[in-house]
Design a binder for these strands. Structure first.
Lengths: 153, 153
DNA sequence: TTCATTGCAAAATTTTTGCATACGA
DNA sequence: TCGTATGCAAAAATTTTGCAATGAA
């Protein structure tokens, strides 16, 4: 909302604005997401949360993530290889997309305005309002592509 | 492979080429996918298959879909709203993408070469070889966007 | 004090696996 | 016949839910 707000303050405001309450668990999950440079799924978040609060329950993590999503503090992402598993990232992170190398398994982030341009062109072309765009890319990274001129998969 | 081949013949060839066997279940699942104009998940495929073969098991559906995917007879897709659930489509269908309206729930298919162009540009830009691109779009369809100038979600 | 939130355990959902039997080539 | 594929049941993996107890405002 406000340029001076930290994510925690923003969350606090959003929670109260919707008749919800700030709890230590919610603050903790948000902090973990904000501080992490890695991609976190619910279970990983749980493991990190337990280091701070050994009683915290996995169900609480899931419920908290739903609330954080509603408060627009986190985004859900998916990886091409493991689409079923939800990955959570703070919305404070600049918009980006993921590329998964099917050979070495590395997941790299990249950002490009090509996707944004495509997005707005598509909005006009198919006549809809896009609120969410998911782009998952999969293939061979530069290094693996070189070693691998003959691809079976 | 060959212009004269039906999907069933192609499957048969691919199966044999990889030391696998054609079975009535595999033929049936492929037929269901080829004939359907809707989006099918594993359970729906199972229901339709049972109409033809009441003994067929859901585990067989899953195993068959894995094989059909390996034989490149089906593609896996996802919808923005329900990312976790896999949707299977025959590769004989022309390439297309899905847009989900979060208001009315309708899923529409569209195809555009914008995405293909973006794809090849991205390949160069980030220096990778893309083997799979997943694009899920979500938002408001034309009709719902009109009724809905004020959007909460 | 009040009601949203949590912890716990149990259930739900979707997909995978082990194993004996059936069946395609 | 030989070994792949199936059916069945049980397990695995991930997420959700019911409910009594807790705790924020």
């Amino acid at each position: 909302m406000d340029k001076n707000s930290t994510p925690l303050i923003t969350l606090n405001q959003s929670l109260h604005a919707s008749g919800r309450r700030m709890t230590s668990q919610r603050a903790l999950v948000l902090k973990i997401l904000e501080e992490s440079t890695e991609h976190l799924d619910a279970e990983t978040i749980w493991e990190r949360a337990k280091a701070q609060d050994e009683r915290i329950n996995l169900a609480t993590i899931y419920r908290t993530l739903i609330v954080l999503k509603e408060m627009r503090m986190v985004d859900l992402r998916y990886f091409a290889r493991d689409h079923k598993r939800e990955i959570y990232e703070p919305t404070s992170k600049p918009e980006h997309y993921h590329f998964t190398c099917t050979k070495c398994g590395n997941i790299t982030e990249f950002s490009t305005n090509r996707i944004n341009r495509m997005r707005s062109q598509l909005q006009n072309e198919i006549g809809v309002v896009l609120t969410h765009t998911c782009v998952c890319l999969e293939g061979y990274c530069h290094r693996c592509a070189e070693k691998n001129t003959h691809n079976t998969e």
